[in-house]
Design a protein around this nucleic acid. Sequence first.
DNA 1: GTTGGAATGTAATATTATAACATATCAAAC
DNA 2: GTTTGATATGTTATAATATTACATTCCAAC
Lengths: 142, 142
Amino acid sequence: MNIMADSRNGTGQTLSDNDAMVFAVIRSANGPLSAYDILDRIKPGRPRIAPPTVYRALDHLIAGGLVRRIESLNAYMKADDRAPGSVVFAICDDCGRVQQRDAGADVARLTKALGRDGFRSTHPVVEVHGRCGDCDAAGGKP
Amino acid sequence: MNIMADSRNGTGQTLSDNDAMVFAVIRSANGPLSAYDILDRIKPGRPRIAPPTVYRALDHLIAGGLVRRIESLNAYMKADDRAPGSVVFAICDDCGRVQQRDAGADVARLTKALGRDGFRSTHPVVEVHGRCGDCDAAGGKP
DNA sequence: GTTGGAATGTAATATTATAACATATCAAAC
DNA sequence: GTTTGATATGTTATAATATTACATTCCAAC
């Protein structure tokens, strides 16, 4: 990792060139992006970039808590600072918008219940599909 | 759909040949299967079967409530009769075993909270990764 | 028996993700 | 300052998952 390549991002972490580049793309998006969406947005300035570079950066960013993966969309988005722990994604299947909400209390209940069966939870996935208020009011794709 | 091809499955539903075949494979498995796992198990007796056939059958079976998709595994398993509504999957990342538990109360809380933001929930995805009691006791892959 | 709609067959391709191995970079030990 | 070892990155190829598009078949309704 080149010293000159390191980049501050405002979260107290230092990122490599690649990681910072992927994070910049995700941060500037207004919704979830697939790994190949990210790839396509980087390619103009860096035509030889390949999938493993993006996936490695995503791994780093997810491990660092800057980015979250949405399993049911195979997509990635910036972690919402207001939901630093367990999160629930509210996914609008009409417009594609995704909101993040803290799910700490609900997840705690779930993991506690599973713990009674001897199950040790490590990573909860809570994603709710539906229709956001705006789309519901507009009645698009009814 | 050939009348002779219809098949009872004990759930009060009538399935086409294809759907029954896919369901039989899933029912006889002791864990989640990918669509291509299913394909591979059907192929010996039906070498020309292709992915769309399996995916169509999965769509039907999921719509009928007989099978569930596990988003974070890209895999499918028989719906547990004891969790007919909203379900939480407890996924052991060591041994791959998946258990289903009713998540009705927790999901109700979630959707109610999201509803206060105007979001109308249609399909909740609740999947918890971790380590099952057996693996935890055995300490494999610690 | 004709017609119209749903299901299925089939080939091709799109999308998402990883394997495998080479190369580069840098810090720490010597 | 060079060796070493660990981490990161580059590169090619391929694996794994899923869908599109269109042809064909099948059956029910008329």
